[in-house]
Simulated assay, not measured.
Amino acid sequence: MIDKELLAADLIGRRLLKVTTAWHHYADDEPSLVHLWLHLEGLGPVLFHTPSTGLSLRADQPHGPYPMEEHGSVTVTDDSPDVPVTRFVGQTIRSVRQIGYNDGKVGFTAGLTLQFPGGSIRLLGLVDDLLIAHDQQLGAVEAHLHEDVTLARVVQTSGGRPSQWDAWTTTGQYLYLRYRHGEGTVEQHPSEDVDT
């Protein structure tokens, strides 16, 4: 399944096995992240990159390091502890939410929030830069980032303990909701079959 475009929903329920990064090194500047591969169980390596503005997902193998004429070089590393997403290696992606950018003039899908049992991470493609945001605010751009979590329909399927609901967002994403003793959980699934 190499060089195939993927949807965000394809990542749900996949265990993260390894992280590979490609860094662009300029002469005098800090290196910048140009490509990120998440190696997912049953799916293989998934390339996250920003073709211009926004984030693209593709099944694709990592490439090796290479020189760039007049613009430095690109190095490739596996499971670098400096990359926040590596702390989720071995965990399964529970949900994926799209992050929209809208400043009143321009609007586009800027990235994704990946939710793991141990926390979440945001992957963003903004103006040719790939950003990994973990427990941090991104300054002025933060006010223009929004995640779709608006529920369009909710149906209670059980009044027991826990009480349970099927729910759908305005974009058609299926959610499984449970509530018991003042605490609730939300699980995102690619279909209404919660075993997936």
Score class of each variant (00 low, 15 high):
69 E>P: 12
68 M>A: 12
42 G>T: 08
151 L>H: 04
56 S>A: 05
149 V>H: 13
27 A>D: 13
172 G>Q: 03
109 T>Q: 10
130 L>M: 01
119 G>M: 09
70 E>F: 15
193 D>V: 07
30 E>C: 10
88 F>A: 08
187 E>K: 12
39 H>M: 09
36 L>Q: 00
21 T>V: 05
30 E>Q: 15
93 I>P: 03
75 T>P: 02
48 F>H: 05
156 Q>Y: 04
95 S>G: 15
177 L>P: 01
109 T>V: 08
1 M>F: 13
58 R>N: 04
182 G>A: 04
68 M>D: 13
88 F>K: 01
123 L>I: 13
87 R>S: 13
118 G>D: 13
117 P>T: 00
40 L>D: 07
125 G>I: 01
74 V>A: 00
15 R>P: 06
153 R>Y: 13
59 A>V: 06
121 I>Y: 02
49 H>P: 02
34 V>N: 09
100 G>Y: 11
70 E>T: 14
130 L>C: 03
48 F>E: 03
107 G>Y: 08
167 A>R: 07
113 T>F: 05
191 S>L: 08
19 V>M: 01
190 P>A: 11
48 F>P: 01
12 I>R: 00
147 E>A: 15
88 F>H: 15
191 S>W: 11
2 I>Q: 15
106 V>T: 11
58 R>G: 00
24 H>T: 06
80 S>T: 01
88 F>V: 06
133 A>V: 12
63 H>F: 06
1 M>D: 14
94 R>C: 14
2 I>P: 14
33 L>W: 05
108 F>K: 01
107 G>Q: 12
154 V>T: 12
99 I>W: 08
141 V>E: 11
59 A>Q: 00
29 D>Y: 14
75 T>F: 00
168 W>L: 05
135 D>L: 12
14 R>W: 02
39 H>P: 04
67 P>M: 09
167 A>D: 08
29 D>Q: 15
106 V>E: 10
8 A>Q: 11
105 K>Q: 13
165 W>Y: 11
191 S>G: 14
18 K>G: 03
48 F>R: 01
178 R>Y: 02
113 T>I: 06
139 G>D: 12
150 T>M: 09
111 G>F: 02
150 T>Q: 13
148 D>M: 07
141 V>K: 08
103 D>Y: 04
115 Q>T: 12
17 L>A: 07
29 D>S: 15
78 D>C: 12
110 A>Q: 07
189 H>Q: 11
